[in-house]
Nucleic acid binder design. Structure first.
Length: 564
RNA sequence: GCCCCCGUAGCUCAGGGGAUAGAGCGCCGCCCUCCGGAGGCGGAAGCGUAGGUUCGAAUCCUACCGGGGGUACCA
């Protein structure tokens, strides 16, 4: 019995009571009841506060209502025990047969276990990383590469149609600075005061010189243009490769330049003007963002006739909406949070609903520690830690896991020494080790000729398979089963809250629960012992655990090794 | 000044109103005659402060205190 099934049973019990007239609910019976796993063992396998919540509306004291529900629920299938506790909690114990059946359900669903149709029919656009093509992907972009991709996987798993987009800012002043930096490097001069430094600048400049040996003979302006075009192209290629190696592939790489060249920017501005949301002042064109909640109005066309940066975002947003995305999510670093107000106002100015059609997630900064001390970074000096550096230091799995394991709302410290270690202090190893350990048992079982009593894929008929779920009655088996049963809820809450870290934390809990089970319950026959039903039942539980860990790691884009 | 994020165990962090606040590391003490000890068991140790809402607050609201970030006709 899963929490969802228990929830359904409780709703059913309540419905029966209402139907009998034993309880009167003016607002009707709730469709969903929250079932939680109590922290204290004595409070049962599952508990619900339903009676506490409905008491006032029903005009019945909470404990009386709980009593009625308990009586009704006791006769439901798979319920072993129901008791009223405290102010009106309902503590439920599930029969071991019903609980053990969860393992078979997991295997029946296989890699689909945990998936849902929560977001079925929704087209969601995820924009993340979008690092400027003036340098490699830095650590902030890397955080979103890991978290954004995981979020994309989670949305897909919950039924959404996901498009990953990378917005490529190949237009404007920063690109000029980039080009000047390349030119300076090629001329053997130091990086300009407002420019970019670092080995990658030298490498790209050299590469451009290889392709265009004549470039330094050109007039300064033409040379800079060559460095701009070639340099951006080279940077773009490198960024794509880096991301691909990281396991992140975007469906759309959107070029800002495209918006300017096709007149999309002008169309967006015209649209806002038609809606009466722009005005001219001091020779510039302003967007009335203040009336949509921003701190003040914003310039979208400067007095020199050049479009302001925001105008590209207007056009880009409009473009996404015209491509049919009802939900556009943008993930930004904390240094851009000041941008949220105007973006939301812009969304509203188009007549859309901020927070629904446009959602902006802000990821706080990441600090990297080595030998217990923070790494100092400087863009100009080129001592920036890049995505590639991080992967070199701790590996791809550790990098993705380390970044996806924490809520994006808070600043985090990543201790490179810790995450590079192949020991249990390292959470990703802890989880992967559990998977390897599980896989090992399954291999040994196969060597013993012990086949799983259930089909690895497809529906399971307990009568035919010989799997007796009621044999999984050990306390540690129950804990593990209940942990496995949580997975679908963890996935849906991760999707709804846009918080992939919940999946990682959950996997750590499953791994811990598995280790405790393993320590207490012998799975395979010992010595010459003959395999019995209990061995087979436990093997099903082990296989189910493997499946859940594999499914969860996949959502994070982290590998699930069978050996390590 | 204003805006956003964060203050939970010595450290790094979980805890989307619920009954005795968790995990890892570190510290103290234990557990390998067979499935991977990269594991498990026990112990000491904590919600920044003050109010408020609620039957019930680490969680929601307000103020304050600390830390980080942001506040351009730059991109």
């Amino acid at each position: 019995m899963t929490p969802e099934q228990l929830s359904t049973a409780i709703v059913h019990a309540l419905t029966t009571l209402v139907g009998r007239g034993a309880v009167t609910l003016p607002d009707g019976v709730p469709a969903q009841v929250v079932v939680e796993r109590p922290k204290v063992r004595e409070h049962g396998d599952y508990a619900t506060n339903l009676a506490l919540q409905l008491a006032k509306r029903a005009g019945v004291p909470p404990r009386d209502l709980a009593g009625l529900l308990a009586e009704e629920l006791r006769s439901a299938d798979g319920i072993a025990e129901v008791e009223v506790a405290g102010p009106g909690f309902l503590n439920v114990r599930v029969s071991s047969g019903a609980q053990g059946a969860v393992a078979a359900q997991v295997l029946a669903l296989g890699s689909a276990y945990g998936s849902s149709d929560l977001f079925a029919g929704e087209r969601i656009d995820l924009e993340f990383v979008s690092a400027n093509p003036t340098g490699p992907i830095h650590i902030g972009g890397t955080r979103w590469a890991a978290v954004g991709d995981a979020l994309g996987r989670i949305f897909s798993f919950t039924g959404a149609e996901v498009t990953r987009e990378y917005y490529f800012n190949d237009h404007g002043a920063q690109i000029d600075r980039f080009a000047r930096s390349l030119l300076a490097s090629a001329q053997g001069k130091p990086a300009p005061e407002d420019g970019y430094g670092g080995q990658y600048i030298v490498d790209i400049a050299d590469a451009v010189l290889d392709r265009r040996p004549d470039v330094l003979d050109l007039p300064e302006e033409e040379a800079q243009e060559v460095f701009r075009a070639e340099g951006v192209e080279a940077m773009f290629t490198e960024i794509k490769k880096t991301l691909h190696d990281f396991g992140v592939d975007f469906d759309v790489y959107f070029h800002e330049n495209h918006l300017h060249e096709t007149g999309a920017v002008q169309r967006a501005i015209d649209r806002l003007t038609e809606l009466g949301n722009t005005y001219e002042q001091d020779g510039a064109l302003w967007l009335r963002t203040e009336q949509f909640g921003d701190d003040k109005d914003r310039v979208i066309v400067r007095s020199n006739g050049q479009p302001a940066y925001l105008s590209g975002d207007l056009a880009y947003y409009l473009d996404k909406r015209e491509r049919g995305f009802d939900r556009c999510l943008i993930m930004l670093g904390a240094d851009h949070h000041g941008y949220v107000g105007r973006m939301m106002a812009m969304c509203a100015a188009f007549g859309d609903v901020p927070g629904t059609n446009l959602e902006i997630l802000i990821g706080q900064l990441v600090n990297l520690l080595s030998d217990g001390a923070p790494l100092r970074m400087s863009k100009r000096a080129g001592t920036v830690i890049t995505l590639d550096d991080l992967v070199d230091a701790i590996g791809r799995d550790a990098a993705r896991y380390a970044l996806a394991r924490y809520t994006s709302d808070s600043e985090i410290d990543i201790d490179l020494d810790l995450w590079a270690r192949a020991t249990s202090d390292n959470p990703v190893y802890y989880v992967q080790y559990a998977h390897a350990r599980v896989s090992s048992i399954l291999r040994n079982a196969a060597d013993l000729g012990l086949l799983l009593p259930v089909a690895p894929h497809g529906p399971v008929d307990p009568d035919e398979t010989g799997f007796d779920p009621s044999l999984l009655s050990h306390e540690k088996e129950g804990e593990l089963l209940r942990a496995l049963a949580e997975f679908p809820r963890v996935v849906t809450s991760a999707a709804q809250l846009r918080e992939p870290h919940r999946v990682a934390r959950y996997l750590e809990e499953v791994a811990a629960s598995y280790h405790r089970f393993y320590d207490n319950c012998r799975v395979l026959p010992m010595g010459d012992e003959e395999a019995g039903d209990l061995h087979r039942a436990r093997l099903v539980l082990v296989a189910a655990t493997r499946q859940v860990i594999a499914n969860g790691l996949d959502l994070l884009g982290v590998s699930a090794p069978e050996r390590m």
